[in-house]
Nucleic acid binder design. Sequence first.
DNA 1: TATAAAACTTGACAGTGTCAATATTACATA
DNA 2: TATGTAATATTGACACTGTCAAGTTTTATA
Lengths: 198, 198
Amino acid sequence: MNHSPTKPHHHGALRVALIQAGIDILQTDGLHGLTLRKCAARAGVSHAAPAHHFDGLVGLKGAIAHHGLSLFREAMLAASADAGDDLAQLKGICRGYLDFAAAQPALFRLMFGFEKHEHRKVSVELDDDLAYEILREACAPFVRDDLPAPILEAQVWSLIHGYATLYLSGNFLRELHALPQQEAFEQVMTALDRMVTR
Amino acid sequence: MNHSPTKPHHHGALRVALIQAGIDILQTDGLHGLTLRKCAARAGVSHAAPAHHFDGLVGLKGAIAHHGLSLFREAMLAASADAGDDLAQLKGICRGYLDFAAAQPALFRLMFGFEKHEHRKVSVELDDDLAYEILREACAPFVRDDLPAPILEAQVWSLIHGYATLYLSGNFLRELHALPQQEAFEQVMTALDRMVTR
DNA sequence: TATAAAACTTGACAGTGTCAATATTACATA
DNA sequence: TATGTAATATTGACACTGTCAAGTTTTATA
């Protein structure tokens, strides 16, 4: 056996190849450009191969989102690596959140853009715990008796997620974005101070 | 002339009919189900008619989003109609924000889901001022020297928009949604108190 | 009424997801 | 090692999609 045991046959690591192809296509052609057939072509397989590994297009998107969440997690971790106190840590994670959305807008939209009827097909692939854990840990130091963890986490997550998605929507928050991006972000994130301090 | 002067010919008010058809289809079939040909069929015209009035599919989506924003505005106004003080007014608007997203998820996603390369085609249709004005006015009483209007508006909007979109995403904020929806909303919105009070 | 413009139709095209049928490969078991 | 079986990928087909060019009908204008 000179083959890797995890290399089933023909192409071998087709699953990862298709996911990577999908991420590349998202970056190049946007969310609309993501196509089973284009992924297949880029991975060098027949047009119907992707629908086999993943359960149709929704399945592929779920797998891409799953992998995207791990990239997302890494981006947030990296952005908060050299943080001083707890608040700087939290803000660093938010910075990583926004930067990831800005760097990979189509992937970001894909991750959070599933419709309700798709949830059942995707929920197995898309365990948010992976990325959510980062946020949860960053929020932990600020939990108080009158501010339980799930509430605080929802508040912080809503703030940064809303800011990131509105940022991607472009047309909105125009007045704010008269400021340079970095300053606008910091100004908006001053809301975190108020949320977190008694 | 027994015809209305604004009734050009054949169908007449095809534009509004197509937009309404689109909104109906969004409600029934979701964002993926929205199709030029289905809108045409529902309005009783040929399959290529919609691409004429609006500049292709993106143009139709832009027109639908434009009309959706006016519905959005009305929903927020209605939800804050019987509000007491300024803070109750602001929270009422946020309540309307969430309720609209929950009631018309596909339309809501459409309104905020345009990609960057589509902005040019859509920006003419999609002047956010219509709906943004509501939020701006509700924020106005809380503007201070150290909290300029654009910043405060961005903070409030990010919070409610993030919460609404995460709510639609379903898989996320699971812990929070162990609470009843109404209470979860109110708990998260306590962040507004902290944002707004000195 | 004659002419032009606008609105809509028709027909065609390439591209899409999905599915059934088929061929190929890998692996387990004898 | 030989054989059978399941997994893996291919092929071909289908209905559906957006878009476009060309043609037809209606409205408006002069």
